[in-house]
Design a protein around this nucleic acid. Structure first.
Lengths: 225, 225
DNA sequence: TGCGAAACTTAAGTGAAACTTAAATATGAT
DNA sequence: ATCATATTTAAGTTTCACTTAAGTTTCGCA
């Protein structure tokens, strides 16, 4: 799951990013409205947490802008004070939820789960993905088959999740990079090969009837054997 | 996905075309504004990458011209300097995005994906080509008939794609070379024969009711038997 | 009908892309 | 601070798509 956090207060932003990463979200952080907009235009997120009060462009304007561009990504607005007017204006502009500072991290996590639940439900079955004889439990990061099971590390999990949400589709190394590492991360595309290798080893150990096939000069593709 | 790249600097244009083709876009290249306009008037594209500074007609004028003609194709503008005025003028003229040189290829690709996302969701019919009893799935590189199917290698795929997008048209070996290998590649025209041979073998195995016919001293042509 | 040119087929060689592994580094928990 | 685990880098290895080359067939024309 990939989230964007737009929050100008650096210490709060860092704290929230840490909490979210611990909970296995992939998080990009923007520090003002214009930056947030740029991220939103170039990446696809599963959810956005948007501070209302920000330099250069306020959160509600960002929200209006992306909604008018036809982007329906779920958005939680953050604000310092619970002003009813702000709240109404925010929700009218297309926010899915609203949270006032200060907030408990547990509440934020719960609201994020609620916000992303719908898109998951709309897309497909909830927290468990199936393909062939393997199952990925997104709540526990467990990849299992009738023969065996593994608890996956964060990056491994996101790789197989991406593949299982798009079975039989070709996914390029660049798409993995953009989605999991963020398009501005400077890691070698080598790292994708490494994780593909790890995952294949696990699929073999699971006696999976599916495999990650390489399509030279194109990408990878999860297919039945 | 079919893109038009309008960029006058030959070396940059060539580099970008190569990158885009590698990412399985079909790309036409124009080297000035007037040429770009001609391409845009005679073909339908899924997206356009338009350099602002070009001979004969600048990018923004091209953009204004096609917009006033009612063409809503998504456009990314390219410019050397990040001048705010230029940016505003470009976006006001109807550009969907703006990218300043130099740029990372991964960022360009991400922006193209963002730009074409909507149209991809709208019309996915583009990703499958039909002729006679054979079908080419451009998403999975699969060539199939009611009897059988093959996953094609990159070059094979591009050859049959070119033929299936222009059925009954005569395509010369040179056209294949320019389009698939690039007009400056130094490979023997032998390779075209080789791939035609591979494809014919596959068409036979598919019991296809179409064939690649050779027109002596002219080229090849995909026709019903 | 026979000749030369063009088109075709096949198979082996090559290099770039993909893969694997292990070691180095970063992160995070105790 | 220390140790355990996750992630990234680096380097050596393998694989396979592409190219080449050489021999064969087909075609058009005299």
């Amino acid at each position: 799951m990939r989230l964007l956090l737009a929050e100008d207060e650096a210490s709060l932003s860092k704290a929230v990013v840490t909490i979210l990463r611990k909970n296995n979200y992939t998080v990009d952080a923007a520090y003002d409205g214009v930056e947030a907009l740029e991220y939103l235009e170039t990446n696809e997120y599963d959810g956005v947490i948007l501070d209302v009060m920000m330099p250069r462009m306020d959160g509600i304007s960002v929200l209006q802008k992306i909604r008018s561009a036809g982007n329906h990504v779920p958005v939680i607005l953050l604000t310092a004070k619970a002003e009813v007017d702000d709240k109404v204006r925010g929700l009218d502009s297309g926010a899915n939820d609203y949270l006032t500072k200060p907030f408990a991290s547990r509440e934020l996590l719960a609201r994020i789960r609620a916000m992303t639940r719908n898109s998951a439900a709309a897309g497909q079955a909830d927290s468990k993905l199936h393909f062939g004889n393997i199952t990925l439990d997104c709540a526990t990061f467990t990849l299992s088959s009738p023969y065996n099971s593994f608890v996956l590390a964060n990056k491994e999990f996101q790789m197989i999740e991406f593949l299982m949400r798009n079975p039989r589709q070709i996914i390029s190394a660049e798409q993995f990079m953009d989605r999991i590492w963020g398009f501005d991360a400077d890691v070698e595309s080598n790292v994708v090969w490494t994780y593909i290798s790890y995952l294949r080893r696990k699929l073999t150990a699971l006696k999976a009837d599916v495999e990650i096939r390489a399509r030279r000069n194109a990408g990878y593709c999860l297919e039945k054997m």
